[in-house]
Design a protein around this nucleic acid. Structure first.
Lengths: 270, 270
DNA sequence: ACATAGTATTGATTGAGATCAAAAAACGAT
DNA sequence: ATCGTTTTTTGATCTCAATCAATACTATGT
């Protein structure tokens, strides 16, 4: 299996078939929704180790159970597979259960631009809540599993559970704040500062899901990182090399070790 | 009255007094909340000409009336006055009633970066919903009036009115999509494309509130525009001059006339 | 193990926009 | 109307990151 998605020959911008028919691989073309995940037969929020950083924060046991009932846990996605595509009708938001994803748009001249990376416990797909059409495509960067939360049901349940409504408002608010940070980053940071900020963001997010904050594997290519940070892949590569030369990080292909956390933070000017 | 805000001598990042005490001018230092707006004594969503592009979309008359009851219409703000500041405790979101605003952050090296401009009918202050602390400062660009919507009451009411909950989810979703567009713009557009995109955005937003889409006044400085688009003010100025030389727009200080709308769109590559 | 495609590094050169600088225009207060 | 401040324009120069280019590395499928 190469990095190239199984359905790469299809142009995501000129597709005409509905999303759920394109999510399956050629071997398994049946709908994603129809297949309960065989890998997590007894999966539930109640026993999910991510429950304290995902949607259920601030919900009590009975509320979590009700949330559990509307969540659909489907078969895992393989690397390169799409969860949904730009212009697909919006039906659900998703919580990453394992693995990681990237969201991206295609610009008018055919280039792709990454709008976000998503890790376990994070919510994605909120583009589309307003327009009812997904504004970006989202693809698994590695073998990954997700919890699908049909939005109409989430709205109904939020209406019954004030805590859930509050929680979802907060999640969307945090997404807006995150976007503002990126706006500032892209409009004023140097290449080195962008990379430092990116690595620090990954670090804290890995820490959140109990993984090492100073040793991790990048699941995305240098090109993906560049598309996200507004840099070319060459500049990303040079930036990593330069940070390594300064003994701030150690890079070996996709393996990153942060050897001088304070130094990395200092690049952002305190 | 200069453009410099009346309270400019205070450093927004080291302030210690609560927001509402800083909003008043030196002449009128009493709380913003305590003063019903003398300019709009009978103001209400029901008779507001913006009601079909603001929060009340998709609400029926009785629902609008209930929303009306929680909205506080305060005295207008003068140019340069702050609605709230970065690090203020979050209490409310706001709908622009008249005039315009800019939101901005200060970076660690003291430079300011504009995160958004807001026009009549638009909602601002949604940074802070998740964190309960405002992530940006917001300042009136001209004499302006707003509707303040205390968030705790909005949440309570949303819980009673599914349409309102739905509407607010949509507003936040649209904000996220807007932010993704800016992400793409900042990470791949040239200076000229950024300016074209900015002018087109203003144009459609002016059209939304019944104003001319091809002749309008910029309420922000070249510096503000540059901070928003990730350019210097000199580049913004040169960009306007260049677009004028191409007969796509006509600029006379803050007055903009779009003379070739198709040409402007063509700069964005269809 | 090998072939192949995708990915990453590094070097040389170029260019768009930043920075520095100075003058002109617009605006607000008195 | 006039003064002082802020904003805008335009020019000259510089710089960081893009682009072009070539090689090296890594992973996947046969």
């Amino acid at each position: 299996m190469t990095y190239q998605p199984v359905d790469a020959q299809r142009d995501p911008l000129v597709r005409d078939t509905p999303a759920r028919e394109t999510i399956g691989t050629s071997a398994a073309s049946d709908s994603l929704r129809a297949r309960p995940c065989p890998h997590n037969p007894a999966a539930s929020c109640s026993n999910c180790r991510l429950s304290d950083l995902c949607l259920p924060i601030a919900l009590n046991k009975s509320e979590i159970q009700q949330l559990d009932n509307i969540i659909e846990r489907n078969r895992p996605l393989i690397k390169g597979e799409h969860l949904y595509r730009q212009r697909d009708e919006f039906r659900s938001v998703y919580a990453v259960r394992s693995g990681s994803f990237k969201s991206y748009t295609l610009t008018s001249d055919g280039k792709s631009r990454v709008t976000g990376f998503y890790m376990p416990g994070e919510i994605l797909g909120m583009d589309g809540i307003g327009t009812r059409i997904h504004g970006v495509s989202t693809m698994a960067l590695e073998h990954a599993s997700i919890c699908e939360i049909p939005f109409s049901q989430l709205e109904k349940l939020s209406h019954q559970l004030p805590n859930l409504q509050s929680r979802f408002f907060a999640i969307m608010g945090n997404e807006i704040v995150k976007d503002q940070h990126i706006h500032t980053l892209l409009s004023s940071y140097t290449a080195e500062q962008r990379l430092a900020s990116f690595l620090l963001s990954l670090s804290t997010r890995y820490a959140r899901c109990q993984l090492s904050p100073d040793r991790f594997l990048l699941q995305m290519t240098r090109g993906d990182i560049g598309e996200y940070l507004g840099l070319t892949l060459e500049t990303v590569s040079r930036g990593f090399s330069s940070l390594q030369k300064k003994a701030i990080i150690s890079v070996k292909s996709r393996e990153i070790a942060i050897t001088d956390m304070a130094g990395l933070k200092a690049i952002l000017g305190d």
